[in-house]
Design a protein around this nucleic acid. Structure first.
Lengths: 130, 130
DNA sequence: CCAATTTTTAGAATCATTCTAATTTTATTA
DNA sequence: TAATAAAATTAGAATGATTCTAAAAATTGG
């Protein structure tokens, strides 16, 4: 089961792996339709869910925004507090440290660093000086 | 402005402060209706949003689940990977460490430790032995 | 090839949340 | 205090992401 991918699952996985842009289901859909005009959004969701369950991709949720999907390799994220822009960042594997501090064994963790991206900084400054 | 709270804002804030249970908008609504039968869900959302903007409460988003609201004081969360159950935990203020590692100045961070709660562990074991 | 299972499709349904417009309340100031 | 402006609340429609259901198509194992 874990080895065999269906036609669409494979393509969706490729799209996510190749894009460095943390795509939403809708974006994956748009992208996939270029080659497979017949696909349907439900198929994207089915496959994204399955791929997540199988641990092949990872879902990133930021409040108020549609879920985005990412490669699975451990890394953290930098999230703009204003616009939700998402960047990869890697602070290394902190699991042991967290487990020790928490005194509990964890499966993994989700670390988001909240910052202001350059665009939002500019907009904020503009607003303030108005 | 930051000092004055409207009638509902104050009550909602109290409900969240008193409950240690990370309530959803719907739960706050149910609770508030006990004293104020006239309130409307939109009022809850309006106020929760305003309270968040003012930095009086904090929104917690976990994929697939409705947003929950929490007191503002810095702390982290333990999230059950299966059922989404949420517990408070505090690993201390790691901002300086994260900023140093990331080489960037951040506003704050969001750390969720993913684990399996006791109930879900039991259910998993039951399933496996079936 | 047949039966069973899995995927995909189509489109309706759900659910949290937001939006709009009207109404009420509160604050301002004349 | 009356009049006006601003803010909060209501009611309910609208949105948008995601899930669900049932049927059709594809794939798999025997």
């Amino acid at each position: 089961m874990l080895v065999i991918l269906t036609k669409y699952a494979r393509k969706i996985l490729e799209i996510i792996a190749e894009s460095r842009s943390h795509m939403t289901a809708a974006q994956v859909f748009t992208q996939l339709k270029k080659n497979c005009p017949g696909v349907v959004l439900a198929t994207i969701y089915n496959n994204l869910n399955r791929l997540c369950e199988e641990g092949r991709i990872r879902r990133i949720s930021v409040e108020g925004l549609p879920d985005r999907y990412d490669r699975i390799q451990r890394h953290d994220h930098l999230v703009c507090q204003r616009c939700g822009k998402l960047l990869d960042i890697d602070l290394g594997d902190l699991r042991a440290q967290f487990e020790k501090k928490a005194g509990i064994s964890i499966l993994s963790y989700d670390l988001k660093l909240l910052y202001l991206c350059e665009d939002c900084k500019k907009n904020l400054n503009r607003k303030e000086s108005e």
